[in-house]
Computed example of a mutant assay.
Amino acid sequence: MKVLLFCCKGFEMMEFAPFYDVLGWAKSEYGYDVEVDTCGFTREVPSAFWNTEIKANKLISEVNASDYDALAIPGGDHLYGFFEEAYDERFLKLIRDFNDSKKNIASVCVGSLPIGKSGVLAGRKATTYHLSEGYRQKELAEFGVDVVNEPVVVDGNVVTSYCPQTAPDVAYTLLERLIGKEKTDTVRRGMGFIE
Rank of each mutant, 00 (worst) to 15 (best):
V36Q: 09
L5M: 09
V147P: 06
E89F: 03
F83M: 11
N51T: 05
D77P: 00
S161I: 11
V154R: 12
E150I: 15
W50P: 01
K181R: 14
F98E: 08
M13N: 11
D37K: 07
V153K: 07
G192K: 08
N104V: 12
T166P: 01
V153C: 04
R96P: 03
K9T: 06
V154P: 00
F41R: 06
L174R: 04
D21T: 14
E142I: 00
I179V: 14
N51H: 12
S112V: 09
S47C: 09
Y20F: 15
Y87D: 07
G24D: 04
V152H: 04
T42S: 15
L4C: 09
G192V: 14
A171K: 06
V63A: 03
E142M: 12
D33I: 01
G134I: 14
T173M: 03
A56Q: 07
D67K: 07
T160F: 09
H78D: 07
S107F: 03
E44S: 15
I105G: 03
T52W: 03
V45Q: 08
V170W: 12
C8Q: 03
D146C: 07
C39R: 08
S28G: 03
E12W: 03
A106S: 12
N99T: 11
V152T: 13
K55N: 01
T160W: 10
E12D: 11
T38P: 03
E133L: 13
S28E: 15
G180P: 11
N157C: 13
V170C: 10
E53V: 01
I60V: 13
N51C: 03
R177S: 13
D169K: 13
Q137F: 00
A70Q: 07
G40E: 05
R43V: 14
T186H: 05
N99S: 15
C109T: 12
F83C: 06
S118E: 14
E44Q: 13
G10Y: 10
V3N: 02
I95V: 13
M1K: 11
K125L: 10
G190A: 10
Q165P: 00
F193L: 14
T42F: 06
G123P: 07
L140N: 12
G40K: 07
H78V: 02
G24K: 00
G192T: 11
L178M: 10
